[in-house]
Simulated assay, not measured.
Amino acid sequence: MNLARGSSDDSGSLLWGLGAIALYALISYGLDYRARARRGSRHPAREALHDLKDREEPQSPRHRIVSRVIMIGGGVLTGLVAYTTSGTLRAVAAGLTAVVAVTAWAYYDHRTETRDSAG
């Protein structure tokens, strides 16, 4: 008995889920790289990689925790969408979920970074 795609014969579902999480991380890195390059950084690729690991502390601890929860939640949600859907819908739904999650994460970081640096 299968309960709402609880058990799947499609062995590629796990790979789709992991691929969606990897795509989410790549999109996040790309956005950070672009922001660093626009600010005139000498080494935007290296700084973007280090920024993903929280080398700098541009936010308060509370804002940083919320930011990481949004980031991880978006990655997990994107993976779940890719895992639970199939066919063409899988690529479209996972892509849209990743774009919305990364946009929400970037918006939150932008808003809190502006407030923290001004205050």
Rank of each mutant, 00 (worst) to 15 (best):
R115D: 04
R90Y: 07
S41N: 15
D51V: 05
V69P: 01
T88E: 12
N2I: 13
T84L: 12
V99I: 02
D109G: 14
A37M: 06
L3P: 05
L89M: 06
L31Y: 12
L80I: 12
A45E: 14
L31D: 03
G119V: 00
T103V: 05
A45K: 09
I21N: 01
D32S: 12
A101Y: 04
I70V: 10
S7F: 13
M71K: 05
Q59W: 09
R111K: 13
V76P: 02
S67E: 07
Y83P: 04
G74K: 01
L77R: 10
D32V: 04
W16K: 08
G12I: 03
H43I: 00
R64G: 10
D10L: 04
A22Y: 11
H50N: 06
V69G: 05
S28A: 03
K53C: 03
G95C: 05
R64N: 14
A106P: 01
R34H: 05
R5P: 00
R90A: 06
T88P: 01
T112R: 07
G19L: 03
A22C: 10
S86Y: 13
I65D: 12
G75A: 09
I65N: 13
V81D: 04
R5M: 00
D116W: 02
G87D: 06
L49R: 12
R115Y: 01
L3V: 15
V92H: 13
G75R: 11
A48V: 09
E113V: 04
V69K: 13
L96W: 11
I70M: 11
S13E: 13
E47Q: 15
Y33D: 12
A35N: 14
S11W: 09
G30N: 14
I65M: 14
A48K: 08
T114L: 08
N2D: 15
R34S: 04
L3F: 13
L23K: 01
R39Y: 00
R115P: 00
H63I: 02
W16R: 14
G73N: 11
S8N: 12
A35W: 13
T97M: 09
R68C: 00
G87N: 09
G119C: 00
S117Q: 14
L26D: 00
K53H: 03
E56T: 15
S28K: 01
V69T: 12
A37T: 11
S86F: 13
V81C: 03
A22K: 11
D116K: 01
D54V: 04
A22E: 10
D9W: 05
V66E: 13
W105P: 04
G87Q: 13
G40W: 06
G19N: 07
L14S: 08
R5Q: 02
T114N: 07
A98I: 02
G19W: 08
Y24G: 09
L3Q: 15
T78C: 02
R5W: 00
S86E: 15
P58E: 11
S117P: 02
T85C: 02
G74E: 02
A20M: 03
A91N: 12
R90K: 14
L89F: 03
L96C: 08
S86P: 05
G75P: 08
G6W: 05
G87Y: 11
D109K: 11
T85Y: 05
R68D: 07
H110K: 06
I72K: 11
T97V: 08
T84R: 14
L26H: 00
G6R: 08
A94T: 02
D51Q: 14
L31W: 08
D116E: 09
D10F: 04
